[in-house]
């Protein structure tokens, strides 16, 4: 009985940890998407459009390189 309860507690703890990890990953990804969405509009609004667009484009490319690259190491 005691071992059943402790096993449930361990599972519950693991589930909660997985949930919070998932939410954290999702928030990071959603924030990146939001930055790109706002960034493309702001880049056109600022004075030097071509520089701003280049910065945004580089940011998008950097995101991709880092996101894919960090998984390739595992």
């Amino acid at each position: 009985m005691m071992s059943d309860l402790s096993s449930k507690a361990v599972h519950g703890h693991a589930d909660a940890r997985l949930r919070s990890t998932n939410v954290r990953t999702a928030i990071v990804l959603a924030s990146i998407a939001a930055v790109f969405f706002v960034g493309i509009v702001v880049a056109k609004l600022v004075g030097d459009t071509s520089t701003a667009m280049s910065v945004l484009g580089a940011a998008v490319l950097l995101f991709l390189v880092l996101a894919i690259g960090r998984n390739l190491r595992k």
Binding site: L29, F36, F37, I40, I68
Partner: peptide, 21 residues
Amino acid sequence: WLITAYLLIAVMPVLAGSVTM
């Protein structure tokens, strides 16, 4: 699919931003 999903995160906001403009 993992790489495709990263691509989507990177480019769909760009499309959304441009059609919003």
